[in-house]
Amino acid sequence: MSSPVVVTEAVTTTLDHTPDKKGRVRADKPRRKTSFKLFLLISPFLVLSFLFAYYPLYGWVYSLYDYKPALGLSGSEFVGLQWFRLLVSSPTQVDQILQVLTNTLAISFLGLATSILPLLFAVLLNEVKITRFRNAVQTLTTLPNFISWVLVYMIAFSLFSSTGLVNDVLLDSGLITTPIKFLDTDQHVWLSMTLWSIWKGLGWGAIIYLAAISGIDPSLYESAKMDGAGRFQTMRYVTIPQLMPTYLVLLLLSVANLLNNGMEQYYVFQNAFNKEHIQVLDLYVYNIGMTGNSLSMATAIGMLKSLISVALLFSVNAFAKRVRGQSLV
């Protein structure tokens, strides 16, 4: 657009505020200059945004090569769609990817199924009348949200490893004679991962509903009371229905994120025993790419995942637009 005019006048901004219709041609230049100067001021940040969000998309071309880091892209062999074909044709690969997809979707659906819990938490906490008690509960239950998954794993390790607290207590009380393997096991992996997510996120997830409850029109409660509604009926017929729109928005957003479980939680909890059932897509991409050195295959899978996720987001958004008349994002 505007050519890089050398800024000679110190103050050009004030001219902007005196648009003169007749002197338009003269006023245009400084205004354009200001306009471009404003852009230049943010351009370093746009470069950062480009580098870390857009430029990596170029990395998708690595999925068309047999990329070897030592050789560089130019030294690596171009293999076309070989990796994508392998994904659907090689029996071992198909087995593996199906298992990974099953894990991903199972954990995601358990997440969807338990997504109502923060809402119920909020509705019940709202029935607590002692403010101090309520605040204390809120503070303590939101704390886990602010620690890292490494620390969650540390907690899991000290409480549930074979020498951990829970086994110690059970052994001391004579309920068991050999330690239960809570962590080094392939049993209930999906469930225990979901439980840890709930432990970490329940209190925090409830905050949004608590705020929504405080925004409910008090007259609704008054008329419910006039109609003789008791405590449970008020919860059932006033509070919960009023929270449903918020719940549905969050639910739709998590549908859009079906494939994005993230990898940190599963990475820290993974071990030789539970590997088969804990590998979600994000972790699988890391495992084959960074540990297994199949960078190109990992790129291909990651790319498909990203495309499907964006498509999901668009669909969910379009759905929301039609149903609510308002888009999500």
């Binding site: 852009f39 943010i42 940040f45 746009l46 945004s49 580098l51 870390f52 969000a53 857009y54 430029y55 990596p56 998309l57 170029y58 990395g59 998708w60 690595y62 990329y67 880091p69 990898m263 994000d282 991409v285 890391y286 790419g289 960074m290 960078l295 990992a298 790129t299 990651g302 790319m303 995942k305 990203s306 996720s309 964006v310 987001l313 994002v329």
Partner: peptide, 23 residues
Amino acid sequence: WYRFVVITMYFSAGLIPLFIIMK
């Protein structure tokens, strides 16, 4: 430019491309 920045919330190139680019 505002959209250019905000839209990056909704997509990701993925872990490996990001790693290669960082490298």
